[in-house]
Design a protein around this nucleic acid. Structure first.
Lengths: 219, 219
DNA sequence: AGGTGTATGTCGCAT
DNA sequence: ATGCGACGTACACCT
């Protein structure tokens, strides 16, 4: 990794055009060749950047970074204040422990928390446009497709709508209805779901975890 | 801005839990207090970060960054390889050109570039699931909803479809048709639009800007 | 503060 | 390569 502090101006031409007037900034060049230009604020996103793979042409006054997609980042350097290169080596990488996968597990184990007496048929029930999170049957024997999200927004309703259209073609499942499940569902998503005859349920992640741990205590 | 190269391990607890085993990394602390941990690859996104506002407690072995939302980033430092602090000052900021907002302005001023004699009724026409970019009337007096994107992809057609379904419920607007406008429209988006009876138009941003500047020359 | 749409989104995974 | 969904999305803008 190379870290250069320089007084520079920058032009990006690609997906849009952008220009940075002259100022002191950090130029970060990583081992994979990607370049990022940081100011002293504004969260982790750089002012300007160019992702790998790219080509870096460098002389004393100007760096030109370009890629095969026709994007170009031009850095005009007036003065270099610091120039540090370090070898970091490969990173072992990040391990994550998320909530959303766990939410699906919990609801698969307790579909009755979505609707009383709902019974699970299968998790990740396949369709030709992707798997439905949960396929269930209600007390009438009607098929119910469940889409689970951590946060319920319009996109999730669209997704469930597409699945329902596919599942409706299966005579074994028809007629099928859908329920959109999330920890919190935005008003617009509710409106859209209701306008399509799709049910929606907000579930409490902590309460579900509580049910789970209560059951564990029985053993 | 402070740039520390250190052999460290990192734990994040917040919206999810994440852990980074020990390795050499860049720790970047900006003037606004935000902290980012970078490996030597992987585009501009850091492995881990904490945005401002937050609190940084620092001793020789451990940095603890926490915010009021209950998120915590803990950096255990085994060895510091480099520690550089520089004053960059305020950045004059980025000027952008070619984003959707500007395209919408230009087309609102020149709806005839979408279709001859199209007339603007209102920009950002509200519906209960969000605003339509432009609402227009054609020469027949038929309402036309316009969705504008920089790049025309399927989700833009989906968005316009949702708006049309809502607007169709309004007797003052019914029957309404839609036109999807972008600088470039992907073949799949064209097919989807056509299959739904939605028109699509590619517009030339530079040409639109040309019209604008020609008009300015008249004064 | 909360809601909604945009992004040079980025990233990963499947086809 | 392209499409699609998730993201600790971040971010600006509006109510």
């Amino acid at each position: 990794m190379r870290l250069v502090i320089a007084r520079c101006s920058v032009t990006y031409e690609g997906r849009l055009n952008a220009f940075l007037p002259i100022a002191d900034r950090l130029l970060m060049v990583k081992a994979d060749g990607c370049v990022a230009i940081h100011a002293d604020g504004g969260a982790y996103k750089p002012l300007n950047w160019m992702n790998a793979p790219n080509r870096l042409e460098e002389d004393a006054k100007r760096w030109i970074v370009s890629n095969t997609k026709g994007e170009t980042l031009t850095i005009d350097i007036e003065e270099i204040l610091s120039d540090l290169t370090v070898e970091l080596g490969d990173d072992p990488g990040l391990t994550k422990d998320g909530v959303e996968a766990h939410l699906q597990e919990l609801l698969a184990a307790h579909p009755g928390e979505i609707e009383p007496d709902l019974e699970l048929v299968r998790r990740e029930y396949p369709t030709d446009i992707g798997p439905v999170d949960l396929l269930c049957r209600d007390t009438d024997g009607t098929a119910v497709a469940i889409e689970i999200k951590r946060r319920g927004e319009i996109d999730g309703v669209e997704q469930l709508t597409r699945y329902l259209a596919r599942l409706e073609l299966d005579p074994m499942l028809r007629p099928i209805r859908g329920v959109f499940v999330a920890q919190q569902i935005k008003p617009q998503a509710r409106v859209l779901a209701e306008s399509r005859g799709i049910g929606w349920v907000e579930v409490d992640y902590d309460a579900l975890r509580g049910i789970e741990s209560d059951e564990l205590k029985l053993f």
